[in-house]
Amino acid sequence: MLERELAKGLVAHGWPEQTWTLSRIGTLIGRRFHKSYTVQRVAALFKRQGWSCRMPARQAVERDENVMASWVKETWPQVEGPWRRSTPGPSSRTKPDSR
């Protein structure tokens, strides 16, 4: 029954995109069968049935390499944060006063 529901497509179930994710499948299971499945449990269920996770065969038409490169160069360093502390930390993580 789940395979039939998946074959109807995402639009039939209220999602605008055409990519099934484990999270969306878990939500569909909850809506249709009134069962609560975690993402890990959905993945295990599909693996048992012989399914596998697949990446799209082609890149999205909307993909813009220049915008992505700009984001990585300008925005990502701010999101990632500094690699090292600005001040030395304690020598022991369990006993901060052990210096």
Rank of each mutant, 00 (worst) to 15 (best):
T75L: 14
W83F: 09
A60M: 03
S70F: 15
K95Y: 12
P82Q: 12
V61F: 09
E74R: 06
S92H: 06
D64V: 03
E80H: 10
E62P: 07
V72L: 06
T75I: 11
P77C: 08
T94A: 02
N66A: 15
T94L: 12
W83A: 08
P82G: 11
K95Q: 14
K95I: 09
K95D: 13
N66G: 06
S91N: 12
E80V: 11
K95E: 09
V67G: 03
T94R: 09
V72C: 04
Q78V: 04
R85K: 13
P88C: 06
A60W: 09
W76I: 07
P88G: 04
E65K: 10
P96H: 01
G89Y: 09
S70E: 12
S86P: 07
P90E: 01
E62M: 01
N66H: 14
E80Y: 06
P88N: 06
S70K: 05
A69G: 01
A69M: 14
V67Y: 11
W83K: 02
A69D: 01
V67M: 14
M68H: 10
E74H: 11
K73W: 14
P90V: 03
S70N: 03
P82K: 12
K73Q: 12
M68Y: 00
G89H: 00
A69P: 08
R63H: 14
A69Q: 10
P82Y: 02
W76Q: 09
N66P: 05
M68K: 05
N66S: 05
E65A: 01
W71D: 01
P96C: 10
A69I: 09
W71K: 07
P88T: 03
S86Y: 11
R84K: 14
E80I: 00
A69K: 04
T75R: 11
P90S: 15
V79P: 09
T75N: 08
V79C: 00
E62L: 01
K73E: 10
R63S: 11
K95V: 07
P77H: 06
W83G: 03
W76F: 12
T87K: 13
R93P: 09
V61M: 02
T75Y: 00
V61K: 13
D64K: 14
R93W: 03
K95M: 06
A60Q: 00
P88V: 01
D64N: 15
R85G: 12
W83D: 05
S91Q: 08
E62S: 12
V61N: 14
M68P: 00
G81Q: 01
